[in-house]
């Protein structure tokens, strides 16, 4: 049974790693939701295999909890899915984040300056 447990663990670990790869690549939030579903199922599989190999019964409630959590998570994310412009769902690199952040800060400064100018015009 130990050998079976090891084979199952290896297969499940590979499945989990592949799901994480899809979660990183995206390209949309829904693809990540699906990867999350697979990951939750893999976790259920791990707990089940561990239960079967060691014949412990105290891990069985974990199966119920994991099944519930996976369902709620994917339905909630799907409910709030929105249209994303192509390329936006990608995980940005460090340089892109720095550039966008600089741009955003620049915009914020001009936004902050705008109402002041309006008020002076009203005063005059």
């Amino acid at each position: 049974m130990t050998v079976v447990g090891l084979i199952c663990a290896a297969l499940l670990a590979a499945a989990g790693a592949l799901a994480v790869v899809r979660m990183e690549r995206g390209p949309s939030m829904l693809d990540r939701t699906i990867a999350l579903d697979v990951l939750t199922t893999v976790l259920v599989g791990f707990v089940a295999v561990q239960t079967a190999v060691s014949r412990r019964t105290d891990t069985v409630p974990l199966l119920v909890a994991l099944a519930l959590v996976g369902f709620v998570g994917s339905v909630t994310i799907a409910r709030f899915a929105s249209k994303e412009p192509p390329g936006q769902g990608r995980v940005r690199t460090r340089e892109e984040i720095a550039r966008d952040e600089a741009q955003r800060l620049g915009l914020d400064e001009s936004d902050a300056a705008a109402p002041v100018r309006e008020r002076t015009e009203e005063d005059v």
């Binding site: 499945a15 790869v21 899809r22 697979v38 089940a48």
Partner: peptide, 17 residues
Amino acid sequence: CLIGGALLAFAAGVGVV
């Protein structure tokens, strides 16, 4: 059964990627 289930999980991982 356990190995069958783990194989299906692995197939899902490959398919999702």
